[in-house]
């Protein structure tokens, strides 16, 4: 009898857990279907290649796409070498001491610093102290610091996956430490490092808070001419279109279109990273 009750209890329990997962999946499906259904009809070539017109009630989002692209490139240029360098230090050179511990604690805590706080930091350091003004450069610097913890962690994972025998084999042949790393570790680790880095960059591309005061512009009639110009960005544009526009209901389709392009961009980057990872694994096996 108790056996049967336990059976029933188990069935109920399992269905509760299954429901939890179902709720999560349901949320995801709702978010995506809502954006896609409403955004799909808005997107056409003009939407992608034209600037906003008529007080941002018509036209496209091209300047925002270009702006997000530029700021992401700056972020990549800064955070990839810095993140990889730090990972190389930690995985190849660092001894187990207080200093190394301090670095690791810093990385974990940097990962937990709110994005708006990075924004504040960027305002003081890059915009004001370093005289970049509100610009693509200042926003890129700010975002690169924000992505640094992710880049480092991902790069270190990639380095860890390279067998010790690659290093030992090289050293035993008379390579110096740096020769061994350069010729027999990095060539195999870099694709993996890039995979993780792209994921970090996709997050940077979708971030709004750090660029609010460091360079994103409400509306610009032309494309930025230099890296010291302000820029329009997809996530900021979505924020504006969703909350700050004078005719919010009128521009709702544009907001949906922007959201869809933003999501598509983030996913294209994620997909790129996943394909890279897949190719990498296949190559390893060969």
């Amino acid at each position: 009898m108790t056996n049967r009750i336990n059976r029933i209890k188990e069935k109920i329990g399992f269905s509760i857990l299954a429901t939890c997962l179902a709720v999560v999946v349901f949320i995801i499906v709702v978010i995506f279907s809502n954006i896609i259904i409403n955004g799909y009809s808005v997107i056409n070539l003009d939407f992608l290649i034209k600037a906003p017109t008529d007080g941002m009630t018509k036209g496209g989002i091209m300047p925002a796409i270009v702006g997000t692209f530029l700021v992401t490139v700056i972020t990549a240029i800064l955070s990839i070498p810095l993140g990889m360098g730090c990972a190389i230090y930690l995985n190849e050179y660092a001894k187990q001491n207080l200093f190394t511990k301090l670095i690791r604690i810093s990385i974990r805590n940097l990962a937990g610093v709110p994005s708006i706080v990075y924004g504040l930091f960027g305002v003081v350091l890059f915009v004001q102290l370093m005289n970049m003004g509100t610009s693509i450069l200042a926003a890129g610097f700010t975002l690169s610091l924000m992505t640094l913890p992710m880049t480092i962690t991902a790069s270190e994972e990639a380095l860890k996956s390279i067998p010790v025998s690659f290093r030992e084999g090289s050293l035993a042949l008379g390579a110096t430490k740096w020769q061994a790393i350069k010729t027999n570790v990095l060539p195999y680790a870099i694709p993996g490092m890039l995979t993780g880095t792209i994921l970090g960059l996709s997050r940077a591309a979708g971030e709004t808070a750090p660029i609010l005061f460091t360079g994103a512009a409400f509306y610009l009639p032309h494309l930025p001419k230099s890296l010291l110009d302000q820029f329009m960005a997809l996530p900021y544009h979505l924020y504006i279109m969703a909350t700050q526009h004078h005719a919010i209901s009128e521009v709702r389709p544009i907001a949906y279109g922007t959201a869809m392009v933003l999501i598509a961009l983030v996913f294209a980057m994620n997909l790129g990273a996943i394909i890279l990872r897949y190719k990498l694994r296949k190559n390893r096996k060969e």
């Binding site: 949320i27 995801i28 409403n38 996530p235 969703a242 999501i263």
Partner: peptide
């Protein structure tokens, strides 16, 4: 995938 959705998009869903 959910983790990679930008927060501004989640906020937009909150509004709409």
């Amino acid at each position: 995938i959910l983790a990679s959705v930008p927060s501004v998009v989640i906020g937009f869903i909150g509004i709409t």
